[in-house]
Amino acid sequence: MDSTYQKGKKGKKKNLSESKKDRVSAYLYIAPFFIIFGVIGLYPALFSFYLAFQKWNGLGEMSFVGLNNFKIVLEDPLFWKSLYNTIVIGLIGTAPQIVIGIILAILLNVAFLRFRSFFRVTIFMPYITSMVAVALIFSVIFSDHQSSLANYVLGLFGADPVSWGTSEWGTKIAISIMVFWRWVGYNTIIYLAGIQSIPNDVYEAATIDGASKFQQVIHITLPLLKPFILLTVFFSTVGALQLFSEPTVFLGASAFTRDEAMTVVMYLYRDAFKLQSFGTASATAIILLVVIIIFAAINTYLTSGIGKKRRRG
């Protein structure tokens, strides 16, 4: 009896030790992700939050200044100008992506379209194109010269040439078109994947009931695409408010000395790496985080109504 009890006890200990080993091995497998995230993600974020309350030039000693960095940023007219530029360019450059992306995805999914694979790859190509190549292309298209492609097209409609690289709205529109051109294919592919996940039986049943193609898009495709639309709206909002590469590359060396297209991230970069004011740069980063959360919540709320039936009063 005692020997049986001891054997059972040893078996339980063995099972417990094996379960502990399994747990340890599982933690070791996922440890690299958390280590990398902690080093290049969590630590910089926490350090930036700490810097927002310090005055530091990157080399000397830090001095605590409380909320003074936030006061400096919020009282700076250039910050509000950069926020205005970011919102305007974001709206012009990203809002049409949602509508055009859905239309392109529907067209790329029709059965009678030939060379669908070619068109899908072509639409996605701008997303993987080098920013240097994009800058060269758009600097030629939107050149200030009267014979540039953009001004030539405007001339066909009787419009006067535009100084795309120096005028207030010319710069904003050129950068917005660059943003749209680069990212619309990305959203289109996501919507296309969402459309292809919708069962054909739903469309067949709607056809039997007499629903037209337009009615099927409104009452079937769009409501079932809602999770994908919410995803792209969220990503587009975050990306638009973090705009940096496109205006920097388009304007070149003068990007940080002009305010026509300076974005919040460019303002942050200027403070940190050109003025060596890491405290105000970190404060700007925190303010930008709050702005992103607010706009993401608003856009998510507005797009969450897609597919919901309106109640009659």
Rank of each mutant, 00 (worst) to 15 (best):
L231E: 10
S3V: 10
I102N: 06
S17D: 10
I89R: 01
V162M: 13
T284D: 13
I141A: 09
Y191Q: 04
K213H: 12
L91S: 10
G252Y: 00
R258P: 00
K226M: 09
H145P: 04
V88R: 08
I30V: 14
K20G: 11
G90A: 04
T232N: 12
S176H: 09
L104P: 04
T207M: 08
L91M: 14
F34W: 10
I40F: 15
E168T: 10
T284L: 08
N68K: 12
Y50S: 12
L156N: 07
A296N: 06
L136Y: 09
A45K: 02
S282I: 04
I175G: 08
A26T: 14
N68Y: 06
T263N: 01
I198P: 14
F273N: 01
V121F: 08
I92L: 11
M125V: 10
A297M: 11
I103Q: 01
K14I: 06
L67V: 06
A261E: 11
Q216R: 13
P227L: 03
L268F: 08
I177D: 02
S254T: 13
F119C: 06
G210P: 02
A255D: 04
F138W: 14
A105L: 06
S82V: 06
P32W: 05
V249S: 09
K55C: 02
I35V: 15
S139R: 13
S82Q: 06
K14Y: 08
A297L: 11
E204I: 08
L108S: 08
I293P: 02
T122W: 11
L67D: 00
L149N: 02
L107E: 08
I195H: 00
A240D: 11
F64G: 01
A272R: 02
S282F: 02
K55F: 01
T257W: 01
F119Q: 07
N151P: 07
I98A: 13
V65S: 04
T122H: 04
S212F: 00
F157G: 13
G239A: 05
A159T: 11
A105P: 04
T232Q: 12
Y191D: 03
I293T: 01
S163N: 13
L107K: 09
I298R: 08
A253I: 10
A211L: 12
F112I: 07
T237V: 10
S82F: 07
I92P: 01
V290N: 04
P77H: 10
L78A: 14
H219Y: 15
I190P: 05
V238L: 14
D201G: 00
I36S: 13
F180E: 01
P44I: 07
F47W: 07
F79E: 09
K274M: 14
N69A: 07
S304P: 12
L288Q: 05
D2P: 03
L251P: 00
K13R: 13
E260Q: 15
T284I: 09
Y301Q: 09
S163W: 07
F124Q: 03
S197H: 00
L251N: 03
I229H: 01
L28N: 04
T248V: 12
L156F: 13
N69T: 05
P247C: 08
K213S: 10
F295D: 04
G90S: 00
S236I: 07
F157C: 06
L104K: 05
L78D: 14
F180K: 02
A272C: 03
A211D: 13
I220V: 15
L113M: 12
N200A: 15
K14E: 07
A240G: 13
P247K: 06
T129K: 03
T248A: 08
T263F: 02
L241F: 11
